[in-house]
Design a binder for these strands. Structure first.
Lengths: 148, 148
DNA sequence: CCTAAATCTCTAAAGACTAGAGCTTCAGGA
DNA sequence: TCCTGAAGCTCTAGTCTTTAGAGATTTAGG
C-alpha cells in the first residue's frame, strides 16, 4: 500500500502526471482511504514503470494503450506488439536521418560565422534564402516534435 | 499582392498558422482590402519562408523572434545569431545521440520477437521489466519533445 | 492531540498550432 | 449586372502531455 508520493518517487513519474494518467485511463483508479487518498499496490507500480519506460522510448500514449491491452491478454499473438515496436523503430530512424541533415546544415552555418555584422551573417542569410540549403529538408516539421 | 491562401500554398504554411503567427507577432499585420481581407507582398513571403525554414530546423518560436529582430538591424554584431544557431546545434546533437540509444534498444526488442504469444513477447516483457534495458535512458524524456 | 507534510480537487498555463461556427467578400461566368 | 461558390473573416474552443498553483483536507509521527 503506497501513497501517490511514494509511487511517484519509485517509478520516477511526477505526482500530477500519475493523476493525469489515471484521468486518461492509462492507469486504473486505485483504492482510496477513508479520507479519499489514493493507495497503490505493486501491480500499479509495475504498470507505471511499463508506461514510463515506453514513453521514454518515444511510444505515443495511444501505442501504450494498445500495448497494455495486449499485455492483458497473454494468449493473443504477439504480432501486434511487434508491429507497434517496429513502427516506432522506423519513426526513430526517420527522425535520426532528418536530424543528421539538420546537424550538417547547422554545422555549415555556424562554422561560417566569422563574428561580423548581422547584415552579412550566414545564419541569417541561410535561413532567409531557402536556395542556400544544403539539403532538402522539406516541410514535414511535425516529425521533429511528435512523440509517436 | 497575394491572398492568404496563395501565401499559404507558396510558403507551405497553413492558413490558420499564418494568422497565428500574426497574432503572436512573428508576422507583421499586412494591408487589408476594403473588405478586410489580408493582402501580402513578396517581403511577407520571404519572412514566412524564413520562419518556416527555421521551424523545420527545430528553432523555437522565441529563437526565431530573436533571429528576426537581428535581421531587422543588420549593423548589430552577428555574434548573437551565431550563438542561437550554436545552441540549436548542440540540441540537435543531443537529440541524435539520444535517439540512437533508443534505436539500439528498439532494434534489440524487435529482432527478438519470434511471433509467439503476447505472454512471452519480448516487446512487452522488456517494457515491463526495466532491468532488461540495454542502456540507461533515464527519465529525461522531455528532451525528445522540446523544440528549442 | 498537534502539527507539518502530503494529499485532495479544480483551474489554468505551456507551445504551436488546428478545427469549426457563422458570417462576409471576392472573382469569374451567364 | 447579378449570381454563385470558393475563399476569406473573427471568435471560440480544442488538441496533447504534462506542469503548477490555490485552497482545503488528511495522514503519520512525536
Amino acid at each position: 500500500m503506497m501513497t501517490i508520493g511514494k509511487l511517484s518517487i519509485t517509478a520516477g513519474v511526477k505526482v500530477p502526471t500519475i493523476r493525469y494518467y489515471e484521468e486518461i485511463g492509462l492507469m486504473p483508479e486505485p483504492e482510496r482511504t477513508e479520507g479519499n487518498q489514493r493507495r497503490y499496490i505493486r501491480a500499479h507500480l509495475e504498470r507505471l514503470n511499463f508506461i514510463r519506460h515506453a514513453r521514454d522510448l518515444g511510444f505515443s500514449v495511444e501505442a501504450i494503450r494498445d500495448l497494455l491491452s495486449l499485455q492483458a491478454t497473454p494468449d493473443a499473438p504477439c504480432h501486434d506488439a511487434d508491429r507497434i515496436a517496429a513502427d516506432n523503430l522506423a519513426d526513430v530512424r526517420a527522425k535520426i536521418a532528418r536530424l543528421k541533415k539538420l546537424e550538417a546544415e547547422l554545422e555549415h552555418i555556424v562554422s561560417e560565422c566569422a563574428g561580423g555584422r548581422a547584415g552579412e551573417c550566414n545564419v541569417l542569410s541561410t535561413l532567409a534564402d531557402h536556395a542556400l540549403c544544403m539539403t532538402d529538408h522539406g516541410h514535414a516539421h511535425n516529425s521533429l516534435h511528435d512523440a509517436s
